[in-house]
Simulated assay, not measured.
Amino acid sequence: MFLRSPATRFATAAATGAVVALAAAGPAAATAGAPESGAERTYQGRVTARTGLLLRDAPNRGGTVVGSEPYNAIVTIYCRTRGENVDGNDRWYLLADGTWAWGAARYIANIGDPPPWC
């Protein structure tokens, strides 16, 4: 277990607040894109960075490194956003594998459909 910086705690709280606000907006907004069974849909990706993927507390390479995933690892993606451009790709994924950290989409190949926008 690692200690989280105030910025990481803030980012986690902001992401949680966004989910709560979406749920409060109404049933139609809260379930948009959810499977018909009512279960929350998950999105996955495979790490393609040969040396592993650094996970950060913000969607840019200046964000503090809070973890990593090895090459070929399967990660759970919560949503995507635009951030710093990495080799021609400005999308970043918020990973929901317990870290709630950002990974550059340039190094994560979607398995199935892409995740929704944050």
Rank of each mutant, 00 (worst) to 15 (best):
R56Y: 04
P114F: 07
R41A: 07
A11Y: 06
T16C: 04
G62Y: 04
S37T: 15
Y43F: 15
V75N: 03
S37V: 04
D57G: 02
G83C: 09
A23Y: 06
C118M: 09
N85K: 10
T81C: 08
W100V: 01
L95W: 09
R50G: 05
A25C: 06
R61Q: 08
G67P: 06
L94R: 08
P27K: 11
V19K: 07
Y71M: 10
S5G: 04
I111L: 14
R9K: 10
W92D: 02
D97N: 12
T16V: 07
D97K: 03
A18M: 08
A24N: 11
A14I: 00
V19D: 11
A109M: 08
G17V: 00
T81D: 01
A101C: 07
A104L: 04
V66Q: 00
G26M: 03
A25R: 05
W92K: 04
T76H: 12
P35R: 13
V66C: 03
T42R: 15
R9V: 01
L55N: 14
D90Y: 02
T51W: 14
A58I: 01
T51N: 15
Y43W: 15
Y107L: 00
A39L: 15
A18I: 01
P115L: 09
N72V: 09
S68E: 14
D57R: 12
G26S: 05
R56F: 12
V86S: 01
A101P: 00
L54R: 00
V47K: 11
R41W: 13
R56W: 08
T99D: 07
F10S: 07
N85E: 11
W117Q: 10
E84D: 10
I77E: 07
T12A: 05
I108A: 04
D87S: 08
T16F: 11
T76N: 13
L55H: 12
A34Q: 15
R50N: 10
V47H: 05
L94G: 01
